[in-house]
């Protein structure tokens, strides 16, 4: 495994289950017990109704590209080596998350394109969820 030179997430109590899910190859999102709304990014309260109890549910891992950009210039280490696709992916559950579209030519990415989550191991603690064209 090559050294990981991209930024790594900070993992704290309220976000630990998410990263533990990723480590096991599962994309977890949150759903409020009180109001029934999904939310992303994960947080310690329901952002919709502000109630406390919020449960983790396994997302299908399927979604579509809501929008994207092919980025040619970023001096951040790990992103300074050529074009990459930054995207907002809308999950089937209805929440959007930032990610990169991988395993395809950037020129082939289109809005509305079906995508599927895939995980890349950064180190023993962190696997990063990306999206690739749905087979």
């Amino acid at each position: 495994m090559p050294d990981w030179n991209k930024p790594l997430p900070s993992i704290v109590g309220e976000t630990r289950p998410y990263w533990e899910g990723c480590r096991q190859g599962q994309l977890l999102i949150q759903k409020c017990d009180a109001c029934g709304e999904y939310q992303f990014y994960p947080r310690g309260i329901c952002a919709n109704c502000w109630s406390g109890p919020i449960k983790w549910v396994k997302a299908s891992g399927r979604g579509t590209v809501w929008t994207f950009t092919v980025t040619y210039q970023n001096r951040t280490p790990g992103f300074d080596g050529g074009p990459y696709v930054l995207a907002l992916v809308e999950l089937e559950e209805g929440v959007k998350m930032f990610s990169n579209i991988v395993e395809c030519n950037p020129r082939d990415v289109k809005i509305g394109m079906p995508v599927q989550v895939t995980f890349v191991k950064a180190n023993d603690q962190v696997s990063v969820p990306y999206f690739k064209p749905a087979g």
């Binding site: 997430p9 993992i11 976000t15 210039q73 930032f98």
Partner: peptide, 16 residues
Amino acid sequence: PSPDSFEELYGLTTVG
């Protein structure tokens, strides 16, 4: 950790 931990690792830029 939020929202940076769910954004920065994907190479967000302002222009992007």
